[in-house]
Nucleic acid binder design. Structure first.
Lengths: 343, 343
DNA sequence: TTGAATTACGCAAACGATTGCACTTATTTA
DNA sequence: TAAATAAGTGCAATCGTTTGCGTAATTCAA
């Protein structure tokens, strides 16, 4: 019933009394095989549902043709932004005939190194990666690069490496969002961001700062906090609101944090958005679930993934020169909802 | 700088003036090679960071050793439950030395067939799959099975095929949830479920029905609706509440739908949970974001994924007999929050 | 009829690794 | 001293394909 052994060209050749070479050529529709034989062989193959052994094909072609598997390293899987990116990568890859091999770094440097090794062994044709928070050494990436495996960074890029990358426009995204808060009457805007050693965190902070300056406001350090998750937001926000001159708006580095702020602010009896405005960053599932719904900066993960895959495939197929570092920036979009006032 | 060409055994052999066979044996630490040579070869390999070409290894071993890549087919990626499952699969797979190859069916039968083909070509050692909603033929799965590729279904199983599977206990999960609604005083409980041609939808409905019966309530068909997303929920719920004898509770097939109900019910001025109770199914991101937070049945996607990977690897490695159909059921857990009353 | 051109195929080497077998030395035993 | 044993290597086939080259059979032109 279940004939484990796949049919090979050799089998077909034996059965039809021709050589393996003839079978190979017939199946690739080479004109150097007579029409009748070609058709006979193709028909036999079809009827016995032959399909080529890619392993062998790849081995034969390893010099010229790379594999068609793209390695994707993602810090987390159960995460709106990252799964959107994965979705974008998968869509682009599959539409261009590539498969994706996915591994989760769990934000750990060691795991990241392991994964690179495994992917290299599995002969991926290239790797799309967002660095783990943990990662401060780049030797594993350099090693890949010198082994000729194209690398594309997304989200958390590696500033020390001049590699291809696609990021969202954190600076402008934040700048626009904070400008919107100011333009709807907010004067004291708090900023909850991630630790500044990540490039994206710094860019968002700069966008915040410059939006304030642009509108003639001053930066009050007491309104700036390191905070990028809900639990921390719920912990530190009450104190923030107890200040003698509390904020009238919050910009949070992601939706999750914004929701934490919203929860606390509502519990403390403030009206959102009239007394306190809140703006997040991501536009994930959560944004339309809370009450009022969250104004937030849409991060367009699927687009990021698509661009990353596009660059990688370009690098693999030689459309882009191998030594070229392609850098793309995906524009964000401010989505206005109920946690901010409207002009 | 960037020497594309990987170092092969042949290179090492040439450089050290020995045969390829000797290199192979030395690297596998065979005692039949003299200690000095063995060490010299190993050192040379290490210094020039040689690593074996898996393609070639696999070709050589294709008879005995399957590959270590697991194919995973998922209907959607940007989805809490499915990304949780993916997370569980990835964790189990990577801890046991396997990679995962992911593809998204987009709920389309045609795409599903394509993917199966691609995965077969890429010589995955087995496939973990949730059927697309669309799928009603199973030939592609049977084809895989007869090619000797182990198959494990999760979530949406294929009832016509006696294959391994892991599902959550939809029946008991729903039964317990509806019982909880009844025990906290609800008498008219509406049911929003998916189309009954999916097994999981039917199981959930049966759980609902039996919970009613068990508590001496009767099933009112006018309270049962086909509805599994937020937009539909927001569309049909107002009419539901305008009935002369409106429901005092809702059970929804997923959190998203439950949120839709919650939004409408709150807007209509009902108090949740005092006048109307709501229970969802999933326990995803949304559940803790809405106000009040959602009582829901936790679906434990990561556990489902882990079990599925465990079965598949068992099948691949022969721990489980190849013809055996292992069926596992993951217990759900009712998470009580603010949208239902507490005893 | 003969040489050239064309057609249709097979041979065999490659891709990179593994492994049974044979072979050369060196060492031991009788 | 001859023969048996052991230790250390190499040869060559193999996994399933692809492909340059050679060659037999056929056709064509002169």
């Amino acid at each position: 019933m279940n004939e484990k052994q796949h049919l090979t060209m050799k089998d077909i050749a034996r059965e039809l009394g021709v050589s393996v070479a003839t079978v190979s050529r017939a199946l690739s529709d080479s004109p150097s095989i007579s029409r009748e034989r070609r058709q006979a062989i193709q028909q036999y193959a079809r009827e016995h549902n032959y399909f080529p052994n890619v392993i062998a094909e790849q081995l034969r072609h390893s010099k010229r043709n790379p594999s068609r598997a793209i390695g994707v390293i993602v810090p987390e899987l159960v995460h709106y932004y990252f799964s959107s990116i994965l979705d974008g990568i998968e869509a682009e890859a599959s539409s261009r005939g590539y498969q994706i091999m996915v591994a989760k770094s769990n934000e750990s440097y060691d795991r990241e190194v392991q994964i690179c090794e495994a992917m290299l062994k599995n002969k991926v044709c290239g790797i799309i990666v967002s660095q783990a928070k943990d990662t401060e050494k780049y030797d594993h990436f350099e090693h890949l690069a010198s082994a000729g495996v194209p690398l594309v960074f997304y989200d958390r890029i590696c500033p020390a490496l001049n590699a291809s990358r696609v990021v969202v426009d954190d600076y402008m995204g934040t700048m626009n969002a904070v400008s919107h808060l100011i333009e709807t009457g907010c004067k004291r805007i708090a900023f909850y961001g991630a630790s500044m050693n990540m490039v994206i965190a710094k860019n968002r902070f700069n966008g915040y700062r410059d939006a304030l300056y642009k509108h003639g406001l001053t930066l009050d350090e007491s309104l700036v906090r390191i905070c990028d998750n809900r639990a921390d937001a719920e912990r530190i926000t009450p104190a923030m609101m107890r200040m003698e001159n509390p904020p009238d708006a919050f910009f949070a580095v992601n939706d999750e944090t914004a929701i934490g702020i919203l929860t606390v602010v509502k519990r403390l009896g403030y009206n959102v958005p009239d007394e306190v405005s809140i703006c997040g960053f991501t536009n994930g599932f959560r944004a339309t679930v809370c009450d009022p719904m969250l104004t937030t900066v849409e991060q367009r993960g699927a687009q990021v993934g698509k661009e990353a895959a596009d660059i990688l495939i370009g690098l693999v197929e030689g459309t882009l020169p191998a030594d070229h570092a392609e850098k793309r920036i995906v524009k964000t979009r401010l989505v206005l909802r109920g946690t901010t006032r409207h002009p």
